[in-house]
Design a protein around this nucleic acid. Structure first.
Lengths: 228, 228
DNA sequence: TCCCTTATTTATCGTATGATAAATAATAAA
DNA sequence: TTTATTATTTATCATACGATAAATAAGGGA
């Protein structure tokens, strides 16, 4: 009466998946769940959201800690794309455009709801993931960006002197301003500018300006006598 | 043999305080404790750190939730000083110096270990404290700052047009850059510039530069025809 | 010095929670 | 169709945790 097949109506009580598929479902669900409620979230509630029994989690992960470790791995490992480093140093385009292009990609592929929240939960939980990630970011993004800023500011040999702390701070200002957009969106849940691309353009323009100020000031200082 | 008084050696098992004093001790301890471990921290552990029994907490606060609410009140209410608003608008000093002066005070009196961490815990817990605080900050700090930026940029009547979203964003960049220093220090626990005053000076200089760019651009647009 | 008030502790309850063991049923092979 | 394998569930344990009740003792007033 309802339809030719009753399969959709009364679904089988037990959905059986291959271990690989089930593990995938659990990990994806755990990422969503822990990103929302934090790592104090209960395994029973996670299981309920996944539509499975709570002990099944323990078939795939011996302890809750193991599952959390897996969530960290999934979220923070491998999202960084090495081709982004190529974008930054490709002087065919203006630095401003390179930064905007990079942050468009970085925002859409890294700065997601799950990433931002789990990153902050991890920091508050005193995990060392944040420090490791910050190291990665300095080496692969901020230091190259600083070199490019020097080049764009007309410094003759941008790689001559090592990057100063002040220059790194200026590069952090760019990055932090982008990051902060997503903190407001996903943590504070404040209304944000709907046009992300426009926000990125404006923010890069503003913060890059500040970075140039640093270089100009330092370059003037260094011109008469190589100092610091 | 040890000393003339044994009082220090064998302290009385039970220290009796007046209700007001004990409440003060509990609230202060709770702020420290929850700032460190988050609001999932257990009442037994809090009591242990306070050197009291766990049920004593319930003599002063009917539920854990009530204690947490009190912590929110203590940390977020009343730290804002209205005289800061006077600093910002006092055009006797250069805007840059006013901002540096304000952030020196704001950093030392608001952006403490407890404030930063509890603020972030609250955000992740979907409390509305953050949104309320952000509103306060926009009204009492950012909008006045935007007006001052206009004035410093030489806009004839800084209060004529309402402040645009883009100008607010520029002011947020200043604030976020300062804020981010403390996120790194107290959440990520990354090494930070030890000279905070120097950091504030440099950061205000850099980010203020970006804010001026916004005004100059907008002012050029507005000069021929009053638009937007 | 004794007594009374009450700040504080000890003992305990009910439920929540991570984790385990045994029972069940879905799927593929025979 | 029957049987073997194993993904999944039900039942359960041990401990953790918020909260309550009764017992204890510190300190002030008579």
């Amino acid at each position: 009466m309802a339809s030719t097949t009753t399969k959709t109506a009364d679904r089988p009580k037990r959905q059986r998946f291959s271990p690989a598929e089930r593990e995938r479902l659990i990990v994806d669900g755990a990422i969503q769940f822990f990103a929302k409620v934090g790592f104090a979230g209960q395994t029973r509630e996670l299981a309920q959201r996944l539509g499975i029994s709570q002990p099944l989690l323990y078939r795939y992960f011996p302890t809750k800690k193991d599952l959390i470790e897996r969530v960290y791995d999934e979220v923070f490992m491998g999202r960084w794309k090495s081709e982004w480093e190529d974008i930054i140093v490709d002087r065919a385009a203006p630095l401003r455009d390179r930064l905007v292009g990079f942050y468009d990609a970085y925002a859409s592929e890294v700065l997601t709801y799950e990433w931002i929240r789990i990153y902050m939960f991890a920091g508050l939980a005193d995990e060392d993931i944040n420090r490791r990630y910050i190291d990665l970011l300095e080496q692969r993004l901020l230091i190259p960006v600083c070199t490019e800023i020097r080049a764009a500011a007309g410094v003759v040999d941008p790689e001559a002197a090592s990057i100063s702390d002040l220059e790194i701070e200026a590069a952090w200002n760019i990055h932090a301003a982008i990051f902060y957009y997503f903190v407001r969106k996903f943590i504070y849940r404040t209304p944000v500018e709907p046009d992300l691309a426009a926000y990125i353009r404006d923010t890069v323009d503003r913060t890059l300006e500040g970075a140039f100020v640093v270089i100009r000031k330092a370059d003037n200082t260094n011109s008469p006598k190589a100092k610091n």
